[in-house]
Every structure is written in structure tokens, then in C-alpha cells.
Design a protein around this nucleic acid. Structure first.
Lengths: 211, 211
DNA sequence: GGTGCGATAGGTCGGACGGCCTATGGTCCG
DNA sequence: CGGACCATAGGCCGTCCGACCTATCGCACC
């Protein structure tokens, strides 16, 4: 689980991004800030693994805030202004990444994971390669070891198909097999019953998957 | 359920906002667009109840797109540039609302509900009053009639407390009472068991509530 | 060509769950 | 005051669930 603090002066951006990142299973937004001052305070108080920082902020800019903060927490600068000047300022202030606000959300998530893993993303030639190495969420041992069939059953659970006979009908297998898969799922996710498995499945985002 | 189409040229904003709004129980994002052209196509194809439109977009701006679209779908303009010029252009193009990107997310959700209800939000003096009338999500009959105790139990379910005896212990009531509440919850939400109730509880956002 | 693993399936069993009914005390409101 | 609603609680019953064990088939990897 990667703890993140986000700073952006547009509340709509700040709150939407916080909500969206928080719904990613391996990322948790522990605090948000609307200017550089709040960012510095939040970073000191919550000790996150990664900072996401906008440049344009009233009073203290993102760049200025980064200069005040110790370099022990990797910071990704996210900005509308992707000129070389801003880029160099960000780099000089200690940023490990510099992304445009045109970046797709999954790429930002990948950048957060990369930053948490100690990667540097200031080299544009390597950026794509670094991001692609961190595209998939780093799930905990249990969730990561789920088989395709088990994920399928979890997906159905998260979508409201909970009865054994319904699951068996949808999957064209016997009720017995459904129960076996469920038992394995309970083991891997360390839960006790369908209700808890459904909660966990939704946390993992399985309810959004199609087919 | 209010179907919405969002247009914004910054993918991070677009995708984050889509994710955040979609997680609100009475709002569904049916399509997103990165420029005015896509917005026009998406509006025609998906026939949403409300449009959320950024002004600054390449090729065809939000204002230009609104001018091309029939006025039968209410549009809310969301922009960084809140000058009188933009305001008047938006109004002339048929927008029913004009909000800054500094607007808090809950206010935007309220504006979406207001727009879906046919309200006009172009009068700044009435804006606060109109928004406050639409703050709470319009839940369907079942969810709206839940009692405090029932919501409490649903919240626990959504947070992974599923066993009758655990629920009884946490709430300091007998297991029998827990089962009675659950039976009433199943009725109101039209579900059959705890797993489905938990799924519904998360959809309603109860898992985020404290205490 | 084993060895391992996943998907399939069956049996048994005790306990948990959900459906249905009744009942009491409290609160709020007309 | 009476009615409506809620939280609390108990009983009964049939069904479903989860735990534990065994077993076969197919596929992939070495």
C-alpha cells in the first residue's frame, strides 16, 4: 500500500484525483493540500511514500514547497505547463518525475508506483519503459495468486451474484465446484465468507470488469 | 440515476472526474470526450441527462460544441477561466450552469442533480441556494428509507464485519436483533443475502463512513 | 514422462443463515 | 389518546453455507 499526499489548487482536480487514486487497490491518499504551505505541513505530518505536486498554487508554489522539503520523499510534479523551464525547476527542486496533466490516470498510478520503488522518471527517453514496468497494481500475496477462474467468481460476487446455484448456472459448472473455488478464494484473501469476499473483490476493482 | 457526459481536454482531469462522479450512487458517467467534436458525438449517441463541459479544448471549444448541440440536454460549463466574457459566452451558448474548477466535488455533484432537475444556475445570487437544495444524493426509494440502525449495520457489512455474532458484539445487541435488522435491510434494498447487501452498501458509499 | 497445479466433482456434517410470526417498550406526532 | 414507526428480542424451521477430505482430468514445465 502506497501512501500519497496530493497538492493542487483546483479543488475539483484535487478531490477528483484523490478519489480516483484512492480507489486503486495499492494506493491510498492520506492527505490533500491546496497550496505549498499545506503540502509541507501534510508531508511532515503524514510521512507519505510519494508526493503528487502541482506547480501553480497560491502563496507557495509546488516548486517552492519541494525546495523546503527534505528529499527523502520522492515527489512527482504534475502540471499543465510542461515547458523546459518548469521541467528544470522541478528537477532542481528534487522532483523524481515530471508529468503533464494530459497524462492518462493509469500512467499516473504507474508513476506513483515507480516513485515509491525509488525509480527516477526525469529522463524522457526512459519514461515509457519505466511506467510500463509499473502498470499493474502491486497486489498483496493473496490477491496476486488468484487464478483466472477464482477472479471470475469474485467478479460475479462483486456484481451481486451471490447464491451458489446462480454462480454454478452462470459458469456452467456444478455447485460443488463453485464451493471449492470459493473455499480457495477465502484462503487466499484471508476472509471467512461471501460477504467479506465481495467487499474485498470490490476493493480490488473487480466489479468494474466486463464479460 | 443521472447519466452524464464529461468533456475536458486534460486526460487526468477527465478520467479522475469521471471516476469520482461515477462513484456517487445517483450519478453515472456514460461517456467522456477530449474535445468539442467528441462531445457532440457522445451527446448524440448516449443521450445523457446532463453535460459537463470544459471550455478550453482543442479543435472545437466547449462553447462552440454547445452552440452546435440542441438545448434539450442541460449543460454545465466547468472552467478555469471564470471571467465575465466566458460567463456570457456560456450563457449565450445555452449553458444552465457556470462553475469554476475551484468548485468542491460535492458542489459539482449537486449542480449535476440541479441541472437534471431542470434548474438554472446562471444567477450567482441564487447559486448557493440551488446547490444546497441538491446536496444529498437522490437515492432510490429502498435505500432512502433505511433507518439509522440499518445504515449502521450496512456500514459494518461494507467494512467487512459479516458474521452475526460479530455484528451483535460490536453493536451491543442480541444476534436475534441483528438478524431482524438484516431482514428489513434485505427487504428495503431488494437483495437476498449479506453478500448482496454488502455490494449495495459499498455502492451507496457507506464503507467510507466513520464510526 | 513425471511433477505440479488448476478445474472439475462428489460426500459428509455441524453450524449459520434467512423466512415467518409474535411481542414489548420507546418516541414522535396529530 | 391512539396510531405509526423503530429497536429490541425470542422461537421455529428448512435450507444453505463453509470446513475437511478425496479424486479425476488436462495442461504446462522441466
Amino acid at each position: 500500500m502506497i501512501d500519497v499526499v496530493i497538492a493542487d489548487d483546483h479543488r475539483l482536480m484535487l478531490e477528483s484525483l484523490a478519489e480516483a487514486l484512492d480507489s486503486i487497490p495499492d494506493i491510498r491518499v492520506v492527505a490533500t493540500a491546496s497550496d505549498g504551505r499545506e503540502l509541507i505541513d501534510a508531508a511532515r505530518e503524514h510521512r507519505p511514500r510519494v508526493l503528487l505536486v502541482d506547480i501553480d498554487m497560491p502563496q507557495v508554489t509546488g516548486i517552492a514547497a519541494l525546495r523546503e522539503l527534505p528529499g527523502d520523499v520522492p515527489a512527482i510534479v504534475v502540471t499543465m505547463h510542461t515547458g523546459e523551464t518548469e521541467r528544470h525547476q522541478a528537477q532542481a527542486a528534487g522532483a523524481v518525475g515530471f508529468l503533464s496533466k494530459a497524462t492518462p490516470l493509469p500512467d499516473l498510478a504507474a508513476a506513483v508506483r515507480a516513485a515509491a520503488a525509488g525509480e527516477d522518471m526525469m529522463n524522457l527517453d526512459e519514461l515509457d519503459e519505466v511506467l510500463s514496468r509499473h502498470r499493474s497494481p502491486q497486489l498483496d500475496a493473496g490477491a496476486a495468486s488468484l487464478t483466472a477462474r477464482e477472479r471470475e467468481i469474485l467478479r460475479l460476487l462483486a456484481q451481486g451474484v451471490s447464491a451458489t446455484d446462480e454462480l454454478a448456472d452462470v459458469l456452467f459448472i456444478s455447485q460443488k465446484t463453485v464451493k471449492n473455488h470459493l473455499a480457495n478464494i477465502y484462503d487466499k484473501l484471508a476472509v471467512a465468507d461471501r460477504a467479506q469476499a465481495a467487499v474485498e473483490a470490490i476493493r480490488l476493482g473487480l466489479h468494474k470488469e466486463e464479460r
